[in-house]
Design a protein around this nucleic acid. Sequence first.
DNA 1: CTCATTCTGGACCAATCGGTCTAGTCCTGT
DNA 2: ACAGGACTAGACCGATTGGTCCAGAATGAG
Lengths: 187, 187
Amino acid sequence: MTERPLPTKDRLIRTAAELFRRSGYNGVGLSELLSAADAPKGSLYHHFPNGKSDLAVAAATWASDGMLRLIAASFEPADSFQDGVETLCHKVAKLFDKSGQWDGCPISSTLFEGPDNATFRDHAHHLYEGWITEVAHHAGRFGISNPQETADTLFILLQGGWQLARARQSSDVLRALPQKMRLTKIH
Amino acid sequence: MTERPLPTKDRLIRTAAELFRRSGYNGVGLSELLSAADAPKGSLYHHFPNGKSDLAVAAATWASDGMLRLIAASFEPADSFQDGVETLCHKVAKLFDKSGQWDGCPISSTLFEGPDNATFRDHAHHLYEGWITEVAHHAGRFGISNPQETADTLFILLQGGWQLARARQSSDVLRALPQKMRLTKIH
DNA sequence: CTCATTCTGGACCAATCGGTCTAGTCCTGT
DNA sequence: ACAGGACTAGACCGATTGGTCCAGAATGAG
């Protein structure tokens, strides 16, 4: 086992991402968070001077980076755009199953709540557009005619599909997405 | 003006639905809720013995009924299923704009948080399937070959579209949904 | 070894949380 | 007129919230 102690800051970010995804920004108290991360309060406010909100932004960014890596890992070795879509949806479905079939989208759970802070909204928008840009890049690479719109569609299907999967407690919906996507516009 | 005083119970449900949609179940305190509804605490616990959670279920149900009426109002006078989809997406876009382009889905904001109560999850599932069943009914009525799957797709597009619209602070995404739907499966 | 900096540990705080409880008001049926 | 249930009003409660603060441990540079 790689029993790496992992620095406190990273431990905070990871557990924050996990807990916020499960219960939402307002559903997680600092005490619960700190005990889960096994860190004292002083460390939190040392690494994140603005406390909970700073940590939430960091956690959402970290989670978003993971998604970007998932997208890249799906499309880079793919033979076609449709092939990448298939792989991505499959990976997301696995992620869903591993998350206990209940957690929400890490970004919306973390940033779409809490203070109706403009910073939160803008950051969420920024992260989402990052996903879409990454998908659009690959769409263009595979010669899809309207990469931006195609990326939008995939994003919408994944978000909506995740929501329905959550309600049904089943990843079947997510696995069926590529078919819907195929019928959409990949000529 | 129809200055109907509206009974306390209904006032509680309506304001609860509104506030939960905006800030999520855990983002709204009883004090804020009660002052917004101009009701004392005693009334809440008279009408909803289990307090906040009972109220949340009632609020989500009320909001869901509104959505069911929106679906019916879109498909009943329609000339075709695709026509109904167009109308529905248009209506939802208007709703989005009227909500200040920030509120979430009333059901997920209210029930997908809070206690990881099984009751909440089941009720959310029940309400969502109600929407889908209603759409599927109209899809069948218009001779769509696979009404259930078509209804699923529309639900997914609306949920995902709403999410993206929220991030972009624009209802354009929602208005563009019918086109994606058309390309999807209506023969 | 020494000193400065970074980081940890946790006591402490006011504010707010959801919830309980009871005294009183209002409304309705008789 | 009066009885009785439906409803309101809000004081009050213990628990928990996010946040502050500082003493001290650990660390790295000279």
